[in-house]
Protein backbone atom coordinates (compact mmCIF):
# COMPACT_ATOMS: atom_id res chain seq x y z
CA UNK A 1 0.00 0.00 0.00
CA UNK A 2 1.33 3.41 -0.97
CA UNK A 3 0.93 6.60 0.95
CA UNK A 4 -1.81 8.97 0.06
CA UNK A 5 -0.14 10.59 -2.93
CA UNK A 6 -2.39 13.63 -3.15
CA UNK A 7 -1.84 14.47 0.50
CA UNK A 8 1.91 14.18 0.05
CA UNK A 9 1.92 16.29 -3.10
CA UNK A 10 -0.20 18.96 -1.50
CA UNK A 11 2.09 19.06 1.53
CA UNK A 12 5.12 19.29 -0.73
CA UNK A 13 3.66 22.13 -2.76
CA UNK A 14 2.69 24.05 0.34
CA UNK A 15 6.13 23.53 1.71
CA UNK A 16 7.60 24.57 -1.64
CA UNK A 17 5.97 28.00 -1.32
CA UNK A 18 8.05 28.56 1.73
CA UNK A 19 11.14 26.61 0.68
CA UNK A 20 11.95 28.95 -2.23
CA UNK A 21 12.22 32.22 -0.31
CA UNK A 22 13.95 30.28 2.45
CA UNK A 23 16.56 29.08 -0.02
CA UNK A 24 17.03 32.60 -1.36
CA UNK A 25 17.41 33.91 2.13
CA UNK A 26 19.96 31.22 2.95
CA UNK A 27 21.89 32.02 -0.21
CA UNK A 28 22.04 35.64 0.86
CA UNK A 29 22.89 35.16 4.48
CA UNK A 30 24.81 31.90 4.33
CA UNK A 31 22.46 30.30 6.77
CA UNK A 32 19.38 30.94 8.82
CA UNK A 33 20.72 31.04 12.34
CA UNK A 34 18.50 29.63 15.07
CA UNK A 35 17.94 33.17 16.33
CA UNK A 36 16.83 34.34 12.86
CA UNK A 37 14.55 31.33 12.54
CA UNK A 38 12.97 32.23 15.86
CA UNK A 39 12.43 35.82 14.72
CA UNK A 40 10.71 34.57 11.59
CA UNK A 41 8.58 32.23 13.68
CA UNK A 42 7.67 35.07 16.02
CA UNK A 43 6.45 37.17 13.10
CA UNK A 44 4.56 34.21 11.58
CA UNK A 45 2.97 33.60 14.96
CA UNK A 46 1.76 37.21 15.22
CA UNK A 47 0.29 37.09 11.73
CA UNK A 48 -1.45 33.78 12.46
CA UNK A 49 -3.23 35.49 15.33
CA UNK A 50 -4.67 38.12 12.97
CA UNK A 51 -6.55 35.57 10.88
CA UNK A 52 -10.02 34.26 11.57
CA UNK A 53 -9.73 30.83 13.16
CA UNK A 54 -12.30 29.35 10.78
CA UNK A 55 -10.28 30.55 7.82
CA UNK A 56 -7.07 28.94 9.07
CA UNK A 57 -8.80 25.68 9.91
CA UNK A 58 -9.64 25.08 6.24
CA UNK A 59 -5.96 24.57 5.30
CA UNK A 60 -3.70 25.19 8.28
CA UNK A 61 -0.46 24.02 6.64
CA UNK A 62 -1.07 26.09 3.52
CA UNK A 63 -1.51 29.20 5.65
CA UNK A 64 1.49 28.42 7.82
CA UNK A 65 3.86 28.03 4.89
CA UNK A 66 2.41 30.90 2.89
CA UNK A 67 2.74 33.28 5.81
CA UNK A 68 6.27 32.05 6.52
CA UNK A 69 7.12 32.58 2.85
CA UNK A 70 5.81 36.15 2.96
CA UNK A 71 7.75 36.98 6.10
CA UNK A 72 10.96 35.61 4.63
CA UNK A 73 10.44 37.34 1.32
CA UNK A 74 10.01 40.65 3.13
CA UNK A 75 13.15 39.98 5.13
CA UNK A 76 15.13 39.26 2.02
CA UNK A 77 13.89 42.46 0.38
CA UNK A 78 14.92 44.45 3.41
CA UNK A 79 18.31 42.73 3.46
CA UNK A 80 18.76 43.60 -0.20
CA UNK A 81 18.10 47.27 0.51
CA UNK A 82 20.61 47.24 3.31
CA UNK A 83 23.29 45.57 1.20
CA UNK A 84 22.82 46.91 -2.33
CA UNK A 85 25.68 44.93 -3.82
CA UNK A 86 24.24 41.70 -2.49
CA UNK A 87 21.34 41.88 -4.91
CA UNK A 88 23.72 41.33 -7.80
CA UNK A 89 24.59 37.84 -6.76
CA UNK A 90 21.24 36.99 -5.26
CA UNK A 91 19.91 35.89 -8.60
CA UNK A 92 22.88 33.65 -9.27
CA UNK A 93 22.79 32.11 -5.85
CA UNK A 94 19.25 30.95 -6.15
CA UNK A 95 20.53 28.69 -8.91
CA UNK A 96 20.69 25.17 -7.49
CA UNK A 97 24.10 24.58 -9.08
CA UNK A 98 25.82 27.33 -7.21
CA UNK A 99 29.01 25.98 -5.62
CA UNK A 100 28.33 27.60 -2.25
CA UNK A 101 24.89 26.11 -2.27
CA UNK A 102 26.28 22.75 -3.34
CA UNK A 103 28.75 22.89 -0.49
CA UNK A 104 25.99 23.68 1.98
CA UNK A 105 24.03 20.76 0.62
CA UNK A 106 26.93 18.28 0.94
CA UNK A 107 27.62 19.51 4.42
CA UNK A 108 23.97 19.20 5.29
CA UNK A 109 23.84 15.80 3.71
CA UNK A 110 26.67 14.35 5.78
CA UNK A 111 25.20 15.83 8.98
CA UNK A 112 21.92 14.26 8.02
CA UNK A 113 23.52 10.92 7.27
CA UNK A 114 25.34 10.67 10.57
CA UNK A 115 22.22 11.77 12.45
CA UNK A 116 20.14 9.08 10.76
CA UNK A 117 22.87 6.51 11.36
CA UNK A 118 22.72 7.38 15.05
CA UNK A 119 19.06 6.39 15.35
CA UNK A 120 18.07 3.01 16.78
CA UNK A 121 17.87 0.29 14.11
CA UNK A 122 14.14 -0.07 14.08
CA UNK A 123 13.46 3.67 13.88
CA UNK A 124 15.91 4.00 10.99
CA UNK A 125 14.29 1.12 9.12
CA UNK A 126 10.85 2.68 9.63
CA UNK A 127 12.10 6.03 8.29
CA UNK A 128 13.58 4.33 5.24
CA UNK A 129 10.41 2.37 4.49
CA UNK A 130 8.36 5.55 4.91
CA UNK A 131 10.51 7.95 2.88
CA UNK A 132 12.31 5.75 0.40
CA UNK A 133 9.65 3.15 -0.30
CA UNK A 134 6.71 5.42 0.49
CA UNK A 135 4.94 2.84 2.62
CA UNK A 136 2.07 3.67 4.96
CA UNK A 137 2.27 3.05 8.69
CA UNK A 138 -0.02 0.09 8.13
CA UNK A 139 2.30 -1.56 5.59
CA UNK A 140 5.38 -0.83 7.66
CA UNK A 141 3.72 -2.37 10.71
CA UNK A 142 2.84 -5.49 8.75
CA UNK A 143 6.30 -5.78 7.25
CA UNK A 144 8.11 -5.44 10.58
CA UNK A 145 5.57 -7.41 12.59
CA UNK A 146 4.81 -4.59 15.00
CA UNK A 147 1.73 -2.45 15.63
CA UNK A 148 0.79 0.72 13.80
CA UNK A 149 1.04 2.62 17.04
CA UNK A 150 4.66 1.59 17.50
CA UNK A 151 5.42 2.70 13.94
CA UNK A 152 3.85 6.05 14.71
CA UNK A 153 5.61 6.42 18.03
CA UNK A 154 8.99 5.45 16.56
CA UNK A 155 8.51 8.01 13.79
CA UNK A 156 7.68 10.77 16.26
CA UNK A 157 10.70 9.86 18.38
CA UNK A 158 12.93 9.69 15.31
CA UNK A 159 11.87 13.18 14.20
CA UNK A 160 12.37 14.56 17.70
CA UNK A 161 15.78 12.92 17.95
CA UNK A 162 16.88 14.17 14.52
CA UNK A 163 15.63 17.62 15.43
CA UNK A 164 17.69 17.51 18.62
CA UNK A 165 20.84 16.19 16.97
CA UNK A 166 20.94 18.44 13.89
CA UNK A 167 18.77 21.36 14.88
CA UNK A 168 17.05 22.28 11.67
CA UNK A 169 18.81 20.88 8.62
CA UNK A 170 19.75 24.33 7.34
CA UNK A 171 20.85 25.52 10.74
CA UNK A 172 23.16 22.57 11.26
CA UNK A 173 26.35 24.60 11.36
CA UNK A 174 24.93 27.20 13.71
CA UNK A 175 23.59 24.65 16.13
CA UNK A 176 26.91 22.79 16.12
CA UNK A 177 28.62 26.00 17.17
CA UNK A 178 26.12 26.76 19.89
CA UNK A 179 26.41 23.20 21.17
CA UNK A 180 30.18 23.36 21.45
CA UNK A 181 30.08 26.66 23.31
CA UNK A 182 27.30 25.55 25.66
Amino acid sequence: MRCNETTRKRLASWFGQWAKPLRQHLALRGRLSPADADDVAQEVFLRLLRYERSELVSHPQAYLFKIAANVLAEWSTRARWKQPHASEWLGDLTDERDPAHEFARTDEHSTMRSAIAGLPGRAREILRLHYEEGLTHESIARQLGITRRIVKRDLIRAYAELRASIGAPTAAAASAVSRSTA
Partner: peptide
Protein backbone atom coordinates in the same frame (compact mmCIF):
# COMPACT_ATOMS: atom_id res chain seq x y z
CA UNK B 1 8.65 25.04 10.52
CA UNK B 2 11.82 23.24 11.58
CA UNK B 3 10.24 19.81 11.57
CA UNK B 4 8.79 20.53 8.09
CA UNK B 5 12.29 21.33 6.89
CA UNK B 6 13.46 18.05 8.37
CA UNK B 7 10.63 16.27 6.58
CA UNK B 8 11.72 17.83 3.30
Amino acid sequence: LRISQLDQ
